[in-house]
Design a binder for these strands. Structure first.
Length: 370
RNA sequence: GGGGUCGUGGUGUAGCCUGGUCUAACACGUCGCCCUGUCACGGCGAAGAUCGCGAGUUCAAAUCUCGUCGACCCCG
C-alpha cells in the first residue's frame, strides 16, 4: 500500500504515497484527529478544502457511543460521518492508558468500565480488530499497551511483551478476515528503553504488517527522548513500509521526525489548542486571549492564507474568546488545522527538491524566534 | 421629623448574632501559563480589599458600643 517516491539527499526524510480504498495519500502526512467521528469544530467540507487527505477516528469511543449497530445501519463510518476520504482508526490502546483507573489488562485482552455509563466491557485484540473492520476503517490499528512516562523498565517490558502478544493475535485473525481493502498496522512499544524498542521493532517487523507505527511517545517525556526513540527505531524499519509516529506532535516535533524518516503523524494539538485559545503560527504559538491583542487588527498569521487569516483580526478573535462565542473556537481550530496541513505541503515540496534540511532550519528559526 | 436595613478587592456576595483559627472566603471579571494515538469550549496559577470614616470597649475588632457620612426602605 506504500510506495516510496523519493528520498531526500541530505536526511532520512522521504516522499511517498499510500494507496487505500478511499483514495491516495501523499506522505509525509498530518492526519487531523476526529475521535468521535468529527474533527472538533470543522466540517468535512472545510477539512477537505484545506487539504486534509485522511482523518483519524477512535474505535474505543465509537464502540461505546453510538455503538457499532448504528454505524453499521448507517452504512459504515464513512457514510455515517460523511467523509469519503481515508479514515485511520485508533484502537483504544491510548484510552486504556489515559483512562487508566477503569481498566484491567491481561494477555487475553482488556477489561474496562465505560467512562460514559460505567458498564463493564471485555475486549480482546480480536474484538478490537473486528470493531474496526466493521467501522470500515481504511487503516486499522491493533490493540496495544501504551506505557506512561516515566515508566519503570519492568513495566515497560511487560507492556511491550503484551503489545507483541496482542499484535500476533490481531495479525493472525486479520489474515483470515481481511478484505483487501483495509490495512492493518503494527505498533512498536518499549517506552524510552532502546533495547526494548529494538526487540519490539524486530518482532513487529517480522509479522509483516501493512505499515509500522511507533507508539508510546509524546506521553510526557522531554522532546529529545521522543527524537531519540524515533531515530533508533526508524533506522531499522523496512524502507517499503509506511512509518507512523502516533500522537506526534507540535510542528517542531513533526519536522524532527520527518527528518528521521517518518511518514505519518496525528495530534490533537491543532484542534485542542485551537479550542483553548492558542493558535499555531509561522512565528510560534500565539495565545489569543493575551491583552496585547486587544487592539491588534492584523491577522493571526500574516503569511497564512486560510479563511480565518484572510477574513478576521486578532482583536476580533480575542473578543470571540472572551465573549465565549463558539465561532472563536471554530476559527482558531480551522486555522490550526490549515497551518499543520500547509506545513506538510511545504515539507513534501522541500523533500521533492532535496531541500528538507534547509527548509526545516528556516522554519524552526522563525518559529522559535516568535 | 421618627423608625429600620445596609455599606467587605473591578462587580455581586459570605463572614458579624456566639470578638482571637480573618496574614479576610467564594463567584464572576482582569492578567499570565499549560495542553502531543482528545472523557478535554479544558486545566493551573497570579494580581487585586488597611472590611465607608472616626472614636471607644478589650490583651485582641470586619465582628461589640457610640458618633458620623452615604445608599435604600417604612411611618408621618
Amino acid at each position: 500500500m506504500y510506495k516510496l517516491i523519493h528520498k531526500d539527499k541530505n536526511s532520512a526524510a522521504r516522499l511517498g504515497r499510500l494507496t487505500t480504498a478511499h483514495g491516495q495519500i501523499d506522505t509525509p502526512v498530518f492526519m487531523p484527529v476526529g475521535t468521535h467521528g468529527t474533527v472538533k469544530g470543522i466540517t468535512p467540507k472545510e477539512l477537505d478544502d484545506c487539504g486534509a487527505q485522511i482523518m483519524l477516528s477512535n474505535a474505543y469511543h465509537l464502540f461505546l457511543r453510538p455503538g457499532l449497530d448504528i454505524i453499521k445501519k448507517a452504512g459504515g463510518l464513512h457514510k455515517f460521518i460523511s467523509w469519503d476520504k481515508p479514515i485511520l482508526t485508533d484502537s483504544g490502546g491510548y484510552q486504556i492508558f489515559s483512562l487508566a483507573l477503569l481498566r484491567k489488562l491481561t494477555d487475553k485482552g482488556v477489561e474496562f468500565q465505560s467512562h460514559i455509563d460505567g458498564k463493564k466491557h471485555f475486549l480482546t485484540p480480536d474484538d478490537v480488530l473486528d470493531i474496526q473492520l466493521t467501522l470500515g476503517s481504511d487503516i486499522i490499528m491493533p490493540l496495544d499497551e501504551c506505557a506512561h512516562y516515566p515508566c519503570s523498565r519492568d513495566h515497560a517490558e511487560v507492556a511491550m511483551k503484551r503489545t507483541i502478544a496482542w499484535a500476533k493475535q490481531a495479525r493472525k485473525s486479520f489474515e483470515h478476515k481481511k478484505t483487501g481493502k483495509q490495512a492493518l498496522f503494527g505498533i512498536i512499544q518499549g517506552a524510552t528503553y532502546d533495547d526494548l524498542r529494538q526487540e519490539c521493532a524486530k518482532e513487529i517487523i517480522d509479522m509483516d504488517f501493512d505499515g509500522l507505527a511507533i507508539g508510546g511517545v509524546s506521553v510526557g517525556e522531554p522532546s529529545d527522548l521522543i527524537y531519540n526513540t524515533i531515530e533508533s527505531v526508524a533506522k531499522i524499519l523496512p524502507e517499503e513500509k509506511a512509518r507512523y509516529v502516533m500522537g506526534v506532535g507540535y510542528p517542531p516535533d513533526i519536522l524532527e521526525a520527518v527528518e528521521r524518516g517518518v511518514d505519518m503523524f496525528d495530534c490533537v494539538a491543532p484542534t485542542r489548542l485551537g479550542r483553548n485559545g492558542t493558535a499555531f503560527t509561522s512565528k510560534g504559538k500565539l495565545i489569543i486571549r493575551n491583552a496585547c491583542f486587544q487592539e491588534d487588527f492584523g491577522p493571526l498569521d500574516a503569511s497564512c492564507t486560510c479563511y480565518t487569516c484572510k477574513n478576521f483580526t486578532r482583536a476580533y478573535l480575542r473578543h470571540l474568546f472572551y465573549a465565549e462565542e463558539m465561532l472563536g473556537l471554530i476559527l482558531l481550530s480551522a486555522h490550526n488545522i490549515y497551518f499543520f496541513l500547509d506545513m506538510m505541503r511545504n515539507v513534501r515540496k522541500a523533500i521533492t527538491e532535496d531541500k528538507f534540511v534547509p527548509f526545516k532550519k528556516d522554519f524552526l528559526e522563525i518559529y522559535n524566534k516568535g
